[in-house]
Amino acid sequence: MSVSVTPLFPGLPGGPEVLVVLLILVLLFGANKIPKLARSTGQAMGEFKRGREEIEDELSQMDDEEADEAETTKSTETSTDAN
């Protein structure tokens, strides 16, 4: 009688895989540098998020400006057509 374990999400690392990766990280970088690596990774992710939000804000401002210009053009055309 053999028991086969089917992962819930194939392709995602499970418990044993995560432990192996953590062990390799400790061997490569040492236990003292892992918190520094995690901190710098978190800071990099924060910078990326801020940059993405700035770009999204700029794009939404551009869309708003284009909508305002289109609205102004349309109202100008309507007023000149009425004359």
Score class of each variant (00 low, 15 high):
Met45Ala: 15
Met45Gly: 10
Met45Pro: 06
Met45Gln: 15
Gly46Tyr: 02
Gly46Ser: 03
Gly46Pro: 00
Gly46Ile: 00
Gly46Arg: 07
Gly46Glu: 08
Glu47His: 11
Glu47Asp: 11
Glu47Ile: 02
Glu47Asn: 13
Phe48His: 11
Phe48Met: 10
Phe48Pro: 01
Lys49Leu: 12
Lys49Trp: 12
Lys49Ser: 13
Arg50Asn: 12
Arg50Val: 03
Arg50Lys: 12
Arg50Met: 10
Arg50Tyr: 08
Gly51Tyr: 01
Gly51Cys: 04
Gly51Glu: 07
Gly51Pro: 04
Gly51Lys: 04
Gly51Ala: 09
Arg52His: 07
Arg52Ser: 05
Arg52Thr: 07
Glu53Phe: 04
Glu53Thr: 10
Glu53Met: 09
Glu53His: 07
Glu54Asn: 06
Glu54Gly: 06
Glu54Ser: 05
Glu54His: 06
Ile55Asn: 05
Ile55Phe: 08
Ile55Arg: 09
Ile55Pro: 01
Glu56Pro: 04
Glu56Ala: 12
Glu56Asp: 12
Asp57Gln: 15
Asp57Glu: 13
Asp57Ala: 14
Asp57Phe: 08
Glu58Thr: 06
Glu58Trp: 05
Glu58Asp: 15
Glu58Arg: 09
Leu59Cys: 06
Leu59Gly: 03
Leu59Asp: 08
Leu59Arg: 08
Ser60Glu: 10
Gln61His: 11
Gln61Trp: 06
Gln61Phe: 06
Met62Tyr: 06
Met62Val: 01
Met62Trp: 01
Asp63Trp: 06
Asp63Ser: 09
Asp63Ile: 07
Asp63Val: 08
Asp63Tyr: 08
Asp63Ala: 14
Asp64Cys: 00
Asp64Ala: 03
Asp64Glu: 04
Asp64Met: 00
Asp64Gly: 00
Glu65Ile: 14
Glu65Pro: 00
Glu65Gln: 12
Glu65Cys: 04
Glu65Gly: 03
Glu65Tyr: 11
Glu65Met: 11
Glu65Ser: 10
Glu66Ser: 01
Glu66Gly: 00
Ala67Lys: 05
Ala67Val: 01
Asp68His: 08
Glu69Ala: 04
Ala70Cys: 01
Ala70Asp: 03
Ala70Tyr: 01
Ala70Glu: 04
Ala70Asn: 03
Glu71His: 03
Glu71Lys: 09
Thr72Pro: 00
Thr72Gln: 11
Thr72Gly: 05
Thr72Lys: 13
Thr72Cys: 07
Thr73Met: 13
Thr73Tyr: 13
Thr73Ala: 14
Thr73Trp: 13
Thr73Asp: 15
Lys74Trp: 06
Lys74His: 04
Lys74Ala: 10
Ser75Thr: 04
Ser75Ile: 01
Ser75His: 05
Ser75Phe: 02
Thr76Arg: 15
Thr76Phe: 14
Thr76Tyr: 13
Thr76Pro: 03
Thr76Trp: 14
Thr76Ile: 15
Thr76Asp: 11
Thr76Gln: 13
Thr76Met: 14
Glu77Ala: 14
Glu77Val: 11
Glu77Cys: 10
Glu77Gln: 12
Glu77Pro: 01
Glu77Ser: 09
Thr78Arg: 15
Thr78Phe: 15
Thr78Asp: 15
Thr78Leu: 15
Ser79Trp: 09
Ser79Met: 09
Ser79Lys: 14
Ser79Ala: 13
Ser79Gln: 09
Thr80Ile: 13
Thr80Ser: 15
Thr80Asp: 14
Asp81Trp: 08
Asp81Cys: 07
Asp81Pro: 14
Asp81Gly: 13
Ala82Cys: 05
Ala82Glu: 11
Ala82Tyr: 08
Ala82Pro: 03
Ala82Asp: 09
